[in-house]
């Protein structure tokens, strides 16, 4: 399977390119939206969680932003990924290629988008005066890779399931929102440990995005390096989701052409 996907690498490349070019087609600001959109989201969350609710986290805008950008990547993979197969149904019904190509291309294009947003993230980090350590910077690609694998796993699962069960597309919108609040993006994880009963904390820690967001934050907000156990649990959870994703997709993809 991997060999075949490798053979079709040019298809991934052209699909990613097509997706990135087509995404903001016709809009006045065009590609600038890649940067403007997360910045506007930042403003909204900052307004609610800092001005209205209030908290005493220093440089809250940076704290928020460093978690928000990776989250947008994840949530796009989850919700957008779910309809990626359906969106390409003409292709699937008419021509053979390894079906995995579609979610892979979609997640990759979201990933490229995140990398572009990181230009803004780096600018904000420099503006805030935080000085990331060299070792931390070296860790960054590894964290991104782990997140990529996790997102790919999620997209494989949701894209295949949505073919058989279209409601998932709408359900995932709400799941994605809830998931965001279940991830320490707008608040520190320590708050959850304080306020929730113990057995919920266990569930909370199963969230694969928690260690990933914390790892980003360790590098870009605290200017240090992620803790070993954070990295390990992120990698383990990412791998588990990817394996489940591959398995589910393999199982379901044989009947795509008939179901679509």
């Amino acid at each position: 399977m991997f060999k075949e996907i490798y053979k079709y690498r040019e298809m991934i490349y052209t699909m990613v390119r097509k997706d990135l070019r087509g995404r903001y087609k016709g809009s006045v600001l065009g590609f600038l939206w890649t940067f403007i959109n997360p910045l506007l989201q930042l403003v909204v969350y900052y307004f609610v969680f800092s001005m209205i609710l209030g908290n005493n986290i220093p440089k809250f805008y940076l704290y928020l932003f460093v978690g928000l950008i990776p989250w947008i990547f994840f949530s796009a993979s989850l919700t957008g990924g779910s309809i990626s197969i359906i969106a390409q149904k003409d292709l699937i019904k008419k021509i053979y290629f390894p079906r995995e190509i579609i979610p892979i291309s979609y997640v990759t294009s979201c990933f490229v988008n995140m990398l572009l947003s990181f230009v803004v993230v780096i600018a904000v980090v420099i503006f805030s005066g935080v000085m990331p350590s060299i070792l931390g910077i070296i860790c960054l690609p590894a964290i991104m890779l782990v997140e990529y694998l996790l997102c790919l796993g999620m997209a494989l699962i949701t894209s295949a399931l949505t073919v058989y069960f279209r409601d998932l597309e709408h359900i995932l919108g709400i799941v994605s929102m809830a998931w965001m609040y279940a991830t320490p993006i707008c608040y520190p994880a320590s708050l959850v440990v304080e306020k929730l009963p113990e057995r919920f904390v266990f569930l909370y820690n199963l969230n694969p995005m928690t260690p990933i967001v914390e790892a980003y934050r360790a590098v870009l907000y605290e200017g240090g390096i992620p803790r070993m156990e954070t990295l390990l649990s992120a990698t383990a959870l990412g791998a588990v989701f990817l394996i489940i994703g591959i398995f589910v997709f393999r199982k379901l993809n044989r009947n795509f052409a008939e179901e679509l």
Binding site: K7, Y8, R9, E10, M11, Y13, T14, L91, I95, F97
Partner: peptide, 8 residues
């Protein structure tokens, strides 16, 4: 052509 599995 890439959909037919051809490389660049």
């Amino acid at each position: 052509a890439s959909i037919f599995g051809l490389s660049k």
